[in-house]
């Protein structure tokens, strides 16, 4: 044994609890992760839950203007580049973080760039592989905004 490998003096604190705590975190986190998938729709493949290649999940986000004739897609290609970046960032983060990621910032940026779009709806559709049927299942949420501010009640899912 080299000099570097000599046993430590007995007065040195035992660091075993630190190492063991890391093991405990690695053991427990995937259960918390599973809970967050169920409660907040986070992406099973992300955030260190080791659930990659377990299932398919996809989140699709659309921004709509409310008109007398119904919902009309906001033409994002016509928005300034910084606003498009905010919307893209929201899509990425919503897909990974689920309901933890609120669309408020994205809608505020959209409303600031296009104040005439007073009534907006953010449509968020989550698709997943349903093992009971082996088909793609989905759930849609419509989040209404007026002048960049969220309405309290969530709108009922549309068709």
């Amino acid at each position: 044994m080299s000099a570097r490998r000599k046993e430590p003096p007995s007065r040195r604190a035992n660091r075993a609890p630190l190492f063991a705590a890391i093991v405990v975190i690695v053991a427990l986190w995937p259960f918390v992760h599973r809970g967050l998938v169920l409660s907040h729709d986070i992406d099973p493949w992300r955030l260190g839950g080791f659930a990659m290649y377990t299932t398919y999940q996809r989140t699709i986000v659309g921004f709509f203007e409310v008109t007398g004739a119904g919902l009309r897609v906001v033409q994002e290609g016509e928005l300034p580049e910084p606003v498009r970046e905010v919307l893209t960032r929201f899509r990425i983060r919503r897909s990974a973080l689920g309901t933890w990621e609120s669309p408020d910032e994205a809608v505020r940026a959209l409303h600031a760039a296009r104040p005439e779009l007073e009534h907006l709806v953010v449509a968020i559709q989550r698709l997943w592989l349903d093992p009971a049927t082996a088909h793609i299942a989905s759930e849609k949420k419509l989040l209404p905004y007026v002048a960049g501010t969220p309405l309290d009640a969530e709108a009922p899912p549309g068709p």
Partner: peptide, 11 residues
């Protein structure tokens, strides 16, 4: 956990 998660999701 990679195995257990596959059981959880059932796919």
């Amino acid at each position: 956990h990679t195995g257990l998660q596959k059981v959880f999701y059932g796919a």
